Simulated assay, not measured.
Amino acid sequence: MVAASTADAALRREQQRILRSSAAAFVVCAAVFAAAVIILPRLVQLPGPDLGSRLTVWAGANLFLVAWVMTGIGMVSTGRRRSADDIRGSAYAPPSPKIAVAAAFLQNTLEQAFVAALAQFALVMLLPSLSMPLIAASVLLFSIGRITFLAGYPRGAGARAFGMALTALPSLLAFVLGLGALVYQLAR
């Protein structure tokens, strides 16, 4: 009974850390998106409204997403080559503790990159006027999110939550904005 209440208390503390970290990530995302929409157009010449220019920006953004996937692949590959327990590959055993964090980072990064790419594409197609600064901000947040996710991973869910939220919230925003734009266009 005491062990269960101790475990429940530890779970609640970790959940509170996750909420605090996620709230901090939300504030950072809001600030970066606001700066991108307000300041970025004053600092740089954004691509025009034509589809070709928008798709070029989206393709460039995808290169940054792919770079993070490639980083994860490199981490797992290097770890496998250096570990007798892992060198045979994932078909023969789950990752050993030596590469477990790298494998989890790669898996999560693949998932996040897939969602980010599709959500950004929806923005490019459905909200052309707003998509360019939002995509620039999303790529920056994705990169910072991946770094902080990886750095926090060994210290638990509360420590990696900031990076997770910083990575996921831009995709959620793009999804909601894209869906809203689609509903608006269909209703007209």
Rank of each mutant, 00 (worst) to 15 (best):
67 A>D: 09
115 V>T: 09
82 R>S: 12
38 I>R: 13
136 A>V: 15
80 R>E: 08
93 A>N: 13
133 P>T: 00
132 M>D: 04
88 R>H: 10
76 V>Y: 03
89 G>R: 05
47 P>A: 02
114 F>L: 14
141 L>V: 10
172 L>G: 14
1 M>N: 11
99 I>M: 04
37 V>F: 11
142 F>V: 04
76 V>E: 01
126 L>W: 04
130 L>S: 12
88 R>F: 12
26 F>K: 02
133 P>F: 01
137 A>S: 11
154 P>A: 03
162 F>Q: 02
64 F>G: 06
121 F>C: 14
62 N>C: 15
100 A>F: 06
16 Q>H: 11
60 G>M: 07
145 G>D: 03
129 S>N: 07
133 P>L: 00
146 R>K: 11
135 I>A: 00
177 L>N: 05
90 S>Y: 09
79 G>E: 00
45 Q>R: 12
142 F>I: 05
180 G>M: 10
38 I>W: 14
69 V>K: 03
128 P>M: 01
15 Q>C: 08
165 A>E: 02
33 F>E: 01
186 L>F: 13
22 S>Q: 00
142 F>K: 07
12 R>T: 12
46 L>E: 07
154 P>H: 02
172 L>M: 08
57 V>P: 05
70 M>Q: 12
182 L>C: 11
42 R>T: 12
35 A>L: 14
135 I>L: 06
23 A>C: 09
125 M>R: 04
157 A>Y: 06
83 S>M: 09
85 D>G: 05
148 T>E: 01
33 F>H: 03
23 A>E: 03
